[in-house]
Simulated assay, not measured.
Amino acid sequence: MQVRSCALVLYHFPDVETQWDLYLAKTYSPEALRMKNFEEEQMPTEWFRDWLQQLA
């Protein structure tokens, strides 16, 4: 069962990365994207809850 869960997470990882890229593109101007330090930026936690529900 754990192997299946890991496989599902890896399968959906590109979706997570794409959603993050879209979020940043919609939230910040191109200038801000070039200048901003994103070390402190966090992905909305509700996204993870939604993804976990989809995986269940």
Score class of each variant (00 low, 15 high):
M1R: 12
M1A: 15
Q2V: 09
V3Q: 09
V3I: 15
V3L: 13
V3S: 06
V3E: 12
R4Y: 15
S5D: 14
C6D: 12
C6Y: 02
C6K: 09
A7Q: 03
A7G: 04
A7N: 00
L8R: 00
V9T: 14
V9Y: 02
V9L: 08
V9Q: 05
V9A: 14
L10W: 13
L10S: 15
Y11G: 05
Y11E: 05
H12A: 01
F13H: 10
F13S: 13
F13T: 02
F13W: 05
P14H: 07
P14N: 08
P14V: 03
D15G: 12
V16Y: 11
V16P: 02
V16Q: 04
E17W: 14
E17P: 07
E17A: 11
T18G: 07
T18R: 14
Q19K: 10
Q19R: 09
Q19S: 11
W20P: 00
D21A: 13
D21M: 10
L22I: 00
L22R: 03
L22F: 07
L22W: 01
Y23T: 06
Y23N: 07
Y23W: 15
L24M: 11
L24C: 08
L24I: 01
A25K: 13
A25Y: 12
A25R: 11
K26T: 02
K26D: 02
K26F: 03
K26E: 01
T27W: 05
T27A: 00
T27Q: 10
Y28S: 04
Y28A: 02
Y28G: 03
S29A: 07
P30H: 00
P30Q: 00
P30F: 05
P30T: 06
P30G: 00
E31N: 07
E31S: 05
A32T: 13
A32M: 09
A32L: 05
L33A: 01
L33C: 08
R34D: 04
R34S: 02
R34I: 02
R34F: 00
M35L: 13
K36C: 01
K36Y: 05
K36S: 03
N37K: 08
N37G: 06
N37T: 10
F38W: 08
F38R: 01
F38M: 05
F38L: 11
F38A: 01
F38N: 00
E39A: 15
E39K: 15
E40T: 00
E40Q: 11
E40D: 13
E40R: 05
E40L: 04
E40C: 07
E41H: 14
E41S: 12
E41V: 11
E41A: 09
E41N: 14
E41C: 15
Q42S: 11
Q42M: 14
Q42K: 15
Q42V: 09
M43W: 04
M43R: 05
M43G: 03
M43Y: 09
P44D: 07
P44N: 00
P44E: 06
T45D: 01
T45K: 15
T45N: 11
E46D: 15
E46F: 10
W47V: 03
W47Y: 13
F48L: 13
R49N: 11
D50C: 00
D50N: 07
D50W: 15
D50G: 03
W51Y: 12
W51E: 05
W51C: 02
W51H: 08
L52Y: 10
Q53N: 11
Q54N: 11
Q54F: 01
Q54R: 08
Q54M: 06
Q54V: 00
L55G: 03
L55E: 02
L55T: 01
A56G: 13
A56M: 12
